[in-house]
Simulated assay, not measured.
Amino acid sequence: MRIGVLTGGGDVPGLNPCIKMLVARANEEGFEVVGIRRGWAGLLEYNLDDPDTHPRCILPLDKFNTRTVDRTGGTFLHTSRTNPGKVSLGRVPDFLKPTITPDQEGPFDFTPHVLKVIEKLGIDILIPIGGDDTLSYGERMHQEGVACVAIPKTMDNDIFGTDYCIGFSTAVTRSVEFIHQLRTSAGSHERIAIVELFGRNSGETSLLASYLAGVDRALISEVPFDPVRVAEKVMADKRGNPSNYAMITVSEGAHMVGGTPVEFGEADAYGHKKLGGIGHILGEALKKLTGEDVLNQQVSYLMRSGAPDSLDLMVAVNFANVAINVIRGGERNRLVALRNGTYTSVPMSTLTQGLKRVDVAELYDKDNYRPKVRHVEGKPMFLY
């Protein structure tokens, strides 16, 4: 049995420990593991006729070269937002360009090439570790006849079918820490402080961080906000604080009523542009509406940098254990998951059966722009 493992999309703390445990358990079972570098790009850019490209794309994994990787964050296999089924003209590898005609503009589907590479490498099962985008191509692979067992990771915790994704706890922990640290500057200067956090479609990271850190207002991706109302609320918060400051968190995917999320740059292979800047836009609006100085801080990549906290470390290694047990048991096309506090697996097709978003009615006061958590009985540990 030869297993291929890859990490795609944004990096999160916990990926390296997950890979290390996958290799350790696989070796115990007599399985061989090969690391696919830079996500799906490792398979797309593997030139069957040029051995010089192979080390850049593929790395055999064993207990020696994974021995210490769990001590750091990120992914030592590297990652990318590559979708071999939708490759733009500018990202087509040189050796594949002769296969397209000059009048074609793309995007191009190089899945047939990927399948040849998988066959050449002798990979029996793929373990993609990623979010919705990365795992959606894993589902495509299964449809093409490649066995897959997927592991969910995203600090937004928005993969449908699992209560938890690798990286989420550390992102919330980091956010709470930075919010509290920023209080010293906000209080010293008697300012309104805005903390912009990651969160494209789901505001769960922002919601939980604001709930745990006790911020005054939290703007999330799911609920458009009125800057005039926000100004009124936050000024009341500032006046009511003996230190004369107020704190706001905002998800990068949040937007004003009648507006759209702040996007920029070229769309990636999954159709997503970069997000970021809504905190500055909100800050300028609040300056005009209130006349107050605003302190604006984008936490962004610091949320996903560094080593995992103990919860992400535990979930990462346990997800790896579940994945190997699923393979050992002969099951395929499964998504490793945590459901109702229990480790399990579900069909990969579950990914596309719904959307995982903040339960606004239950957890958010949309009139006052703040968490409203009253009943936690029966809910998962991290709510949602």
Results as ranks from 00 to 15, higher is better:
Ile3Gln: 11
Gly8Tyr: 02
Pro13Ile: 01
Gly14Phe: 03
Pro17Gln: 01
Ile19Pro: 03
Leu22Phe: 03
Leu22Gly: 05
Arg25Asp: 04
Asn27Ser: 12
Asn27Ala: 12
Gly30Phe: 01
Ile36Arg: 10
Trp40Gly: 02
Ala41His: 12
Leu44Phe: 06
Asp52Gly: 10
Asn65Glu: 11
Thr66Phe: 01
Asp70Glu: 09
Asp70Val: 07
Arg71Tyr: 13
Thr75Ile: 02
Leu77Gly: 01
His78Val: 09
Arg81Cys: 07
Arg81Tyr: 09
Ser88Gly: 07
Leu89Arg: 15
Arg91Asn: 15
Asp94Met: 07
Lys97Glu: 13
Thr99Leu: 15
Thr101Phe: 08
Thr101Cys: 06
Gly106Asn: 10
Phe108Trp: 03
Asp109Phe: 03
Phe110Gln: 05
Phe110Arg: 03
Phe110Thr: 00
Thr111Asp: 04
Leu121Met: 02
Gly122Ser: 01
Ile123Ala: 04
Leu126Gly: 11
Pro128His: 06
Asp132Tyr: 13
Thr134Met: 08
Thr134Trp: 13
Glu139Asn: 13
Glu139Trp: 15
Met141Asn: 13
Met141Ala: 13
Gln143His: 09
Cys148Ala: 08
Ile151Ser: 00
Ile151Cys: 01
Met155Ser: 04
Ile159Val: 14
Ala171His: 01
Leu182Tyr: 02
Thr184Ile: 12
Gly187Gln: 07
Glu190Phe: 08
Ile192Val: 05
Ile194Tyr: 02
Leu197Ala: 02
Gly199Val: 03
Asn201Met: 10
Gly203Thr: 05
Gly214Leu: 07
Val215Phe: 01
Asp216Ile: 06
Ile220Arg: 05
Phe225Leu: 13
Phe225Gln: 12
Val228Asn: 11
Ala231Gly: 09
Glu232Lys: 14
Ala236Ile: 09
Ala236Gly: 06
Lys238Val: 09
Arg239Gln: 11
Gly240Pro: 10
Thr249Met: 07
Gly253Leu: 05
Pro261His: 03
Phe264Gln: 08
Gly265Ser: 01
Asp268His: 11
Ala269Cys: 13
Ile278Asp: 08
His280Trp: 11
Ile281Leu: 14
Leu282Thr: 08
Ala285Asn: 08
Leu286Phe: 07
Gly291Phe: 03
Asp293Glu: 15
Leu302His: 06
Arg304Ala: 10
Ser305Asp: 12
Gly306Pro: 03
Ala316Arg: 02
Ala316Gly: 06
Ala320Gln: 00
Asn321Ala: 11
Ala323Asp: 06
Ile324Arg: 10
Val326Ser: 07
Ile327Gln: 07
Gly330Ile: 11
Gly330Gln: 11
Glu331His: 15
Arg332Leu: 06
Leu335Trp: 04
Val336Thr: 08
Ala337Glu: 08
Leu338Lys: 08
Asn340Ala: 14
Val346Met: 02
Leu351Ala: 11
Gln353Lys: 12
Gly354Glu: 14
Leu355Val: 15
Arg357Lys: 14
Val358Ile: 09
Val358Lys: 11
Val360Ile: 13
Ala361Thr: 12
Tyr369Thr: 05
Pro371Tyr: 03
Val376Asp: 04
Val376Gly: 06
Val376Ile: 12
Glu377Tyr: 14
Gly378Ile: 04
